[in-house]
Design a protein around this nucleic acid. Sequence first.
DNA 1: ATCCTCCCCTAC
DNA 2: TAAGGTAGGGGAGGAT
Length: 900
Amino acid sequence: MILQHGGDYQHYLKKLSVTHIIASNLTNSKLQEFRSYKVVRPEWITESVQAQQMLPWQNYRLVPRATTQRELLFSRDKETSIPEKITGESLNADVLANDWARQVSTANPTFIKRYYETSRLHYLSTWKEELKDIVDKLEQKYKSDANSLSRKNSSAAHNRIVMHVDFDCFFASVGIKDRPHLSSLPVAVSHSKTVSETSSSDIASCNYVARSFGIHNGMTIGMAKGLCPTLQVIPYEFDKYKSISKKFYEILFQYADEMQAVSVDEALLEVRSHITQPKDDACAQKEEQEALATAIRDAIRQETGCEASIGVGPNILLARMSTKRAKPAGQYVCNSKQDIEDLLASQNVTDLPGVGYAIGDKLKELNVTLVSDLRKKPLYELQAKLGAKMGQTLYNFSRGIDDRPLITNQPRQSVSAEVNWGVRFENEENERGFVEGLAKEVAERLQKHNVKGKNITVKILKRKDDATQAAKHLGHGRVDAFTKSCALGNFTDDAALINKHVYSMLRSFQFSSADIRGLGIHVSKLDNQERLSSDQETLNFKSRNEIDAQQRQPSIEKGDLSRQASKEIMEVDPFVYNELPHSVQKELEATYNLKFKKLLATNDEPKKIPEQPAISTLPELPPWSQLDPLSLLALPNEMRDQILKTYGTKEGDTLLKTPQDTPTIQKSRAPASLHTKTPRLSSAKVGGGSNRSRTITQMFQPSASPSSRSNVSSSSVTNNNETPTTRTSRFQYVFQGQEEENGDDGDLPYDAEVWKELPQDMKDELLEEHRRLKRVKIEQKVQKEHSVSRESAQRIDLHPYRTKEPSLQGVTDIKEVRSLLREWVASYKESPEAEDVATITNYLIELVYHADLEKVRLVIAYLMYLVRDFDSSSWKLCTGQIHETVSEMVKSVYGCPLCI
DNA sequence: ATCCTCCCCTAC
DNA sequence: TAAGGTAGGGGAGGAT
């Protein structure tokens, strides 16, 4: 209708060419973004057409969604039928009648500042950030050191030694250190000054004497008093904690190849390079690790006067579990299979890191309480219950497997501030003031960390309708949580701007201010993120140019464009310009050297289609990729022909003014809606069971460079002078063979009927595009499988159904499989590569699903035979692990273990 | 398939 | 009386 009545239609908002925006609904952020545009409902068009004249747009303004939304009306009558309705207003009035409560709640204008000065959790978070910074800086310093390479490399090696160091009841220990007379008494750290039964103050930390009474962290003083009337309460001493923590980190850094700040009293260390004993001498290694732990504990005791416990293990999980075992004031080294068993099997699942109440409950629904129960569950069951990632993680954890590296130098992703205590608003003005203060707080934090963000999220805790006075004094009580976010056009750290958005989002919920029990502001999408892709708005041209100058396509560089744009002359249609909002006009004037066109000389297009009765000029066409063939078919014949011809004669994207002699369609993707809903013509499956075998391509590569996980793929890619996405290996034929077979286009994903209607040249384009897409897909799949196999050794395909026989490296015959294994073991005398172990495990698992247990048995037996008289324990450990995993698998699928 | 929003969960 | 913050991983489900 727009076109037929002389209008023009743009698919994307371009400030220079859009006069009105048609929408029946818009998100909050779009409403904000378009607030200076003429945003009208579609009725403006239809009714104008009907009236045969352009009606005033003002009458068709799109009103904000919030106000068009119908309100859920809870009848007042029903409410009053509840005998004593509890309202936020009455509850707040009750609490705020008390003068003291007024002082410490939002009723006090200086509340936010005072609150953050006393919140232990706030300190915990702040310290963690500071310590991360310190560790990063120290790391930087060491990097310039000559020694740094060896330090770094050793931690990336496969045989990790991870150390977890953790103070025993940190806050309590620090307090007791300066109050020796309390050392043998039950002690707790809390805000509470008196130990009364009614105190709802939390215990932040308590010593082991107190714990012997059943007292634990997080318990209220009131409850603790019930358990132990003689409990000694000491106050927080935040400054002390911080200074002791500093000493702690200074000590640790001397022993760490790499360090992750976990918290003020806790850190993770890679200490491989500090262990000199050979890997295969487990006994000597254990002794050395014990000695190292003792030395570190001694140093900490001497410097800080407090006890720390240390756990050592081959990964983070086992190090942490070891610390648990070590406490208090002890250490534990886990370096044998038996140790792993001792640490895990009998533990409660909630003792695993990352398993709290919620996940513990979900596991309980699966009848899983102990880690040993967890181990009996097949992967798919865990994933179905907990999600793909969590299921996999716990499946691995239960077996002592944990691939996670230490996290260091991670750029911050968000900044936030929230307060969920003491929030009691007497009126809306009160609420507004608080939001303003919180926005200011967030803005200051952004500024402090030198970042800006373009996404703002507000989080609200609203008292449940039936919630009475909170159990904790001025606590939030029983609440529901709500969040809403908005995307900004620009990065910001401006308090007023943040406040404006937050307040408007908050109001959109239409909650009574008296019901609000907590508020938070989160800012994300920060401007400190690494620019990895050319899509990003800022680019580090130097480094990128250096890295991939050769791979660079002669395509457009967005960055280049925008850089030059500031000097460019911009041709503007005066008609369009006059319709633009004033702010946009100004912006254009500021940015460009504007030059007004004479008049509607749309003859930019060299090839104009002459015979057009219906429409004289074509509107700017959407990119080819956006074209919906079904809609195309629905158009009047002439119009469709014209559109198709236009695509055939020029670039789909008219922004690219490069003249094209040959009618090609670049950068096009198959429109999604073309995907058939009827069965495909034929689906020629190629490659068969060899798909997975591609993950093995690294298997026989020399292990010269201590191939850290991250550089494996890159090293295999940059070898030789091949295209980046193909693999350098003697097994390359697997990949290339597939690619060639793709000449078969039988599996085109298009509806046969639609296809038939398309003109031949369009068919040709689509065919070519289809082939290209297919190639890309295969390449991506190869890469993905690599990353997957790197992620976890126990990845199991969730789709057991296999028509093709599983293969290792494209090979299925047991003799050939054996010779592959022989070759593999021979080429890695020292210890196996994790990726290869994963590949073989995967192969075996597929065999299990393929019900070829005999072959499973043969392969494992042969592996064991190959490593039978190896000195290296890692080979034996590894084959043992493969055996165990597969056996577990067999058990979960068939109900009985595998007998070799 | 990938992204985005609105959550939930966890750790200290 | 009391100071239930914060960042990041991740999932569900919808939009693109």
